[in-house]
């Protein structure tokens, strides 16, 4: 754990609240939400390595595919959509680990649970900041890697859009698994074993949308399904994560 996070967690929270000009006793839900969001973003920005790791992982995994499959452009074109999506999925799994970890270790997670604000919004704020830090860069890097895998040009926008809709779902589902396992001493691969099966629909819809886009097929169904998944997980997953946090911390 880095020094920055140790010192800054709870003090930063208070400072944020002070900056917003609110009394600590009567913080509106929105103020607490934005304070949590800003705090997490600030901490993440101070830890550059954590920022780069998911990106590097994504880059490495994608470049393993040509090495493992073939360097033949035609074959790569066929697997490009799936390869980019699977790598994005794995990258977001990997980065999940530090979603609640540091907060759990320094005790600020417990404070979060004790706060009078609805836990749903606090967890949502953490999710959003985590996605901005680890999901969004992956989405932005994806077209470059897709180019390296010879993805047809028609599919670029679909790739970026489905990743934009899909990676938040991955983060939201993943947060449930992280919340369930945050108290465990040695977690190893259990997080992946729990969360990966839950992410199957996202992978199917996302990869299929990109493949179909490169074939010039209509995509209305894919986007509406992905949107439905995002809406569902936005409304339900933070509730489940909040309940899971309460179970793990007590």
């Amino acid at each position: 754990m880095s020094e920055a996070s140790k010192t800054s967690h709870s003090s930063l929270f208070k400072k944020e609240l002070g900056a917003l000009g609110v009394d600590q006793e009567q913080v509106s839900t929105f103020a607490a939400f934005s304070a949590t969001l800003r705090r997490d973003l600030l901490i993440a920005l101070k830890r550059r390595n954590d920022l780069l790791n998911p990106l590097m992982f994504f880059l490495i995994v994608v470049s393993l595919f040509p090495l493992g499959v073939s360097s033949d452009p035609q074959e790569l074109t066929r697997i490009a959509a799936g390869a980019v999506w699977v790598s994005a999925l794995l990258a977001s799994m990997l980065s999940l680990d530090n979603l609640f970890r540091a907060d759990y270790e320094d005790g600020s997670l417990e404070q979060l649970l004790l706060s009078p604000q609805p836990l749903y919004f606090m967890v949502l704020a953490k999710n959003i900041s985590h996605w901005l830090i680890s999901g969004l860069p992956v989405v932005l890097l994806a077209p470059l890697l897709a180019y390296m895998l010879y993805l047809p040009a028609d599919a670029y926008w679909t790739l970026v859009l489905t990743l934009l809709l899909g990676t938040p779902v991955l983060s939201l589902f993943g947060a449930i698994g992280v919340a369930l396992t945050v108290g465990l001493g040695s977690r190893g691969l259990i997080l992946a074993v729990i969360v990966l099966p839950l992410t199957v629909p996202v992978l199917i819809i996302g990869a299929k949308a990109v493949t179909d886009a490169s074939l010039g097929l209509p995509l209305g169904m894919h986007f509406s399904l992905m949107g439905a998944l995002l809406a569902l997980s936005l409304s339900l997953a933070p509730l489940a994560s909040a309940a899971a946090l309460k179970i793990s911390v007590n």
């Binding site: 369930l180 179970i247 793990s248 007590n250």
Partner: peptide, 11 residues
């Protein structure tokens, strides 16, 4: 804790 965590995961 295992009971509650598994209950949630099952749901």
């Amino acid at each position: 804790a295992a009971a509650k965590a598994c209950a949630l995961l099952s749901i």
